[in-house]
Nucleic acid binder design. Structure first.
Lengths: 143, 143
DNA sequence: CGTCAACATCGATGCTCGTCGATGTCGTGT
DNA sequence: ACACGACATCGACGAGCATCGATGTTGACG
């Protein structure tokens, strides 16, 4: 459980892993705790030495979660919302997308480790994971 | 055709002002200037107030250029290469992709304003645009 | 002028992904 | 127990994209 593939710039055993398919894990069948996949990462400068294929794939998977207009707006709307958290009903209307689509995008962001889900009663509240976005920013920073 | 839309979170006119930020012209130097699309951007905190649909689309377009394993490796390989620049022939082999594919990815990065192309003789040298990646990182930073 | 090498562009193909309506699940109230 | 509302999941459709081989373009060199 919890494959937990971190980016780790270079070095490492660099195991074979021929299929390169492994680590897909969405962990959709989890009882309660979702298998958060990406985004914790150690801290790769990216512009330091050429990163390996596995590191690049892992980083790209997290960046893909952010590289979408709807998800970017969701992140900013959740962050800017009162109390730093918002439920789906708060996001569906201003986004202009259907409820299933919003739920899908939120799941992608949760799986990427950028959002945290907290179900209280009938409502599901989403909140930013404290250091997640800053980690991403740190990898892209050149200085 | 497609006047480059900058991110600019909300308010403020859509025109680019002279010294809005530090020095960083995406400006692919050369006679025939291509229709460079994104990436200069002013500076949106993202986690400040909900960004508009246009700003999100523009930001997502730039992030999509980075959210790919091959392009991430290209960025790091170019940055880590001697002199901070590399030609296509230096990148094709270590990447393990065909030459047309590498050229395609490089074009995407140039159009996004992240790489600059400099053709000298028969070779085309690519180099990082100074502040581009840091701007992207700045938008994602929450603090 | 002809040939070769380095890139860019083109067209096609297979896969990924964003979106939706329909449906399932779980709480809350009557 | 029943009905309703908030979300999650499913299956399907269409658009976008990564990749390749083939071909076009442009310098360098004899």
């Amino acid at each position: 459980m919890l494959v937990d593939v971190v980016w780790h710039p270079v070095g490492m055993p660099a195991v074979a892993e021929p299929t390169a398919r492994g680590a897909d894990v969405v962990a959709a069948a989890g009882p309660a705790v979702p298998g958060h996949v990406g985004a914790e990462a150690c801290c790769a400068p990216l512009v330091r030495e050429p990163l390996s294929a596995e590191s690049a794939a892992a980083l790209a998977r997290t960046l893909k979660a952010v590289a979408d207009p709807a998800r970017l707006r969701l992140l900013s709307m959740v962050a800017a919302h009162e109390g730093g958290e918002a439920c789906v009903c708060d996001l569906t209307e201003p986004l202009g997308l259907s409820q299933p689509t919003v739920s899908h995008h939120l799941k992608v962001l949760v799986d990427a480790g950028l959002l945290a889900r907290d179900k209280r009663g009938v409502w599901a509240y989403y909140r930013l994971v404290p250091g997640a976005l800053d980690h991403l920013a740190g990898v892209l920073t050149t200085s």
